[in-house]
């Protein structure tokens, strides 16, 4: 009985050392692998600047709408100011088209609909189209920054 217990005891001890060794091995390889995986995420993204010029105040008479196709942004001019709205559908990133007749944005991919203010009127889009920040340069040129979204309803008076 005694000797048997001893035996299993020493077995446990050997087991423990073995497990430590295996654990250290797995840990080292695992951490190395996890470290290498960081390489998948570049620390600087190769993306172009998200700011672009849209012209000056005179280019936007009240009631006009200008679509910037390359940037996928529409700029609306209303009596109380300008606003820039994203044309990228919040569902899966398709480009919504301005349906002037119905006064709405249509997404071709999964049928989302938005009002001209960006509010979702038909699923599946989960959230409204974002509004972007418009700033005036000292020269009078207007810039839109797609990296900064502002509260819907924030208009800029030029």
């Amino acid at each position: 009985m005694d000797s048997e217990e001893k035996k299993s005891d020493s077995g446990d001890r050997r087991d423990f050392v073995g497990k430590c060794a295996a654990g250290a091995f797995v840990g080292a390889v695992g951490l190395a692998a996890a470290g290498s995986l960081c390489g998948l995420k570049p620390s600087v993204l190769p993306d172009p600047s998200e700011q672009f010029k849209i012209g000056s105040g005179q280019d936007f008479p009240v009631g006009s709408v200008k679509v910037f196709e390359k940037e996928n942004v529409a700029v609306f001019s209303e009596p109380d100011g300008l606003y820039a709205i994203s044309l990228v559908c919040t569902h899966l990133g398709c480009i919504v088209s301005l349906n002037a007749k119905e006064g709405q944005f249509d997404c071709p991919c999964h049928g989302s609909r938005f009002t001209l203010k960006g509010k979702v009127t038909r699923a599946p889009a989960p959230k409204p189209l974002p509004w972007f920040k418009i700033t005036a340069q000292p020269s009078g040129a207007l810039m839109v920054d797609k990296g900064i979204s502002v509260e819907s309803g924030t208009k800029v008076v030029v």
Binding site: E69, P108, C109, H110, A123, P124
Partner: peptide
Amino acid sequence: SVPENPAKAPWYFLAMQEIISYSA
């Protein structure tokens, strides 16, 4: 700047695209 309209996935993903049109 111009997505296909309709922009359909290859046929074996269409069942998934249909349920995606409910919620992404």
